[in-house]
Design a protein around this nucleic acid. Structure first.
Lengths: 251, 251
DNA sequence: CGACTTGTTGATGTACATCAAGGTACGTGG
DNA sequence: CCACGTACCTTGATGTACATCAACAAGTCG
């Protein structure tokens, strides 16, 4: 388990940021783009399994995911783990340490990743000079809250089958929005243990529940490739409310 | 079930806001105070049981709680309810509808309440002109996220007894920070059903679990008066990490 | 080729939900 | 002041969804 330090190296200039062509992200004005370019202090290449953030420690950096998947989690002293949410390209990591003085959760890379690094002491300049960008930060925090609300509803009140259906559909849709899917396929870079820890159930029960969905040919999952065979049926089981999709901030 | 409209009437001027004397809240500068005064468009007196916010609807107002308790919740079509968090004096309600176009959760008053009303279309002026206040909004959103993370850990991974201990201590400490306690006493304005819905368990099981704590004289609860008899023992059961207390924003 | 990691399945126990009944406090109208 | 209703809490009986334990299968990697 390693804690990361940024490494020097070539990095994607913000002007060429791949998200700029994604319709899910809003456009930057030239001054915004210029500020962000200066805000970004480098890039971090993280391997699978890297601990990106560690609960109760401070983090001098704020990250956005440029490529790859990670997950946020908390652990109890005896090792029980709860996965709180997943971080995909475009997501923030480490805001808590910038706003308070230490992280309330940890985060780990699920794949090799590229992260944009922002020094947290410059966050104040963003708020002071770029109201539209500080609104975007609030937007992201509110979106995270909304996802947590949903997950809490799942874990607290949905049955195992409903929970499993919900999280699979949720993750598929997030990947879809980012153009990570090909038709009904997507690469899910995690194991059944991760699903179990997300949904608050045991590995064995997660396996049984998942197989109820695969045996009915609603989904398919092998060798990390997930296929959404019957979306309507899955949404029906999940009780999924088709939330609006709207342009999201860049940062 | 009623949805609220603001009623005219006398309201507390921000200059005389009771939170200004509470050391948990940071101080406002004179310009900040002046802006907030203009931002506040009135007050709302809400009775117990009032629906303050309704999921999937829009809310033209943003509220802060001046007095009283409320809770945020989500419901499934068949009536299962998950309480997400409680709102106490100083807390925001309705940010989601200001940032997105509709609420992702509902909120209901647990007591008679007084709420400060802020028209959401002026939220942009706050971001544009008052970076310190917009940072406060982000602070509040991040704090809400942190509480949700904790609750999700509880519901997903803690045992019924640990969960019960955690939520009772959590609520007691929040009340304490606001000066709502008298020694080991506090008035908890909710029923066991609310605890059950917060912790993702049935009413009967919440009752059994609670009685395990009362019969060991760790807590006492009768007629809405809660007494924390053995704080250390409760913290031990909860696995409570004594999080820092630091000055918080006003808004 | 073994050693390790991930997924699958069955046997057994328990923490929980559900159903049902009664208890206590408090209000209301006679 | 009593009969009655209502709201909330408490307790027991029964069933089930889930966890835990254990073994094995299948794939991957040195």
């Amino acid at each position: 388990m390693t804690i990361l330090e940024p490494v020097p190296g070539r990095s994607v200039p913000c002007e060429a940021c791949p998200f700029r062509s994604n319709p899910m992200f809003r456009d930057f004005s030239p001054p915004e783009l210029e500020f962000i370019s200066g805000f970004k202090s480098g890039e971090l290449n993280a391997e699978v399994g890297t601990t990106l953030l560690l609960e109760d420690t401070n983090s001098p950096y704020l990250y956005t995911v440029l490529a790859g998947w990670a997950f946020r989690y908390k652990m109890l002293p005896d090792g029980r783990r709860q996965i709180l949410n997943f971080a995909l390209p475009g997501d923030f990591l480490g805001l808590q340490a910038s706003v308070f003085d230490r992280m309330g959760h940890s985060a780990e890379a699920l794949t090799d990743m590229i992260l944009c690094i922002f020094p947290r002491e410059k966050l104040w300049e963003l708020f002071a000079g770029y109201p539209s960008l500080s609104f975007d930060v609030t937007w992201l925090a509110a979106r995270e809250e909304r996802m947590l609300d949903e997950n809490l509803l799942s874990v607290g009140r949905r049955s195992a089958l409903e929970r499993m259906a919900y999280v699979l559909l949720h993750l598929f849709r997030r990947a879809e929005d980012l153009g990570l899917t090909e038709g009904d396929r997507v690469e899910f870079p995690f194991f059944q243990q991760h699903l179990a820890d997300t949904l608050g159930m045991s590995l064995v029960h997660a396996n049984n529940t998942l197989r109820r969905l695969t045996s009915q040919k609603i989904v398919h999952w092998k060798h990390k490739v997930f296929r959404l065979l019957d979306r309507d049926r899955l949404a029906e089981i999940a009780g999924y409310d088709f939330a609006e999709r709207q342009p999201r901030p860049f940062i």
